[in-house]
Amino acid sequence: MTLEEDNGPEPGGDDLFAAEYVLGVLAADEREIASRRIDADAAFARLVDAWEAHLSPMAGAYPETEPPIRVKEAIDRQLFVAEPRAGLWSSLAFWRGLAAASVAALAITIAVPYLNPPVEQPRLVASLAADGSDVRYLAVYDAAHREVGLSHVSGERAAGKDFELWMIEGKNAPVSIGVIPAGQTAHMTISPAVQEKLARGAVLAVSLEPAGGSPTGQPTGPVVAAGDLKSI
């Protein structure tokens, strides 16, 4: 990773091409080439991913702006109408946005399950929230990596307190997955026993605990966020 890399035409070529794609400076035709390579070339996709991870903290500068309700209504019509085809056919915006690259991506998305039949791992998502609390997490359960990825959306822990993540299945006592590390995102590894229950769609909950986690093994503080895992 020296500056020599951008002098020669090829050394560092893919790495810099990935960086330029992520930065967003490429022209339309170059972006299309990059986008096809992401779909077809796993090594290139990893380079892109690494650059996305490097640069993503800059996205903190994007302000949140509530979109008008008509956007959600249009999406619902497109995704959830009984005959989704009718929704797609009638959406001008959809066809306009469906560039050649998207068609290629779509074709690969459809083809991949047939090429790799054994690895259809469940992916579950939960939005964790509760009335009277501003704590929000987005949780994604990744069975393949045996972990729960948490993205902190809002709400701060009080001084000297920690958030702890629990798995609750039916009427059974909550099982601790662990204290959630501070920060924007966290990856928490889960035990095989918990994994089995998560795959069936257990509830995830976040409680406020003394620093270091519940001393009793059961939640001692208020549940500040909870949600069902649903498949996506």
Partner: peptide, 17 residues
């Protein structure tokens, strides 16, 4: 959504990307 499997990004960063 299946693409998320190969990404090291947090969910929200993945969505923003």
């Amino acid at each position: 959504a299946d693409r998320f499997a190969v990404s090291d990004l947090s969910p929200i960063s993945w969505l923003v990307a």
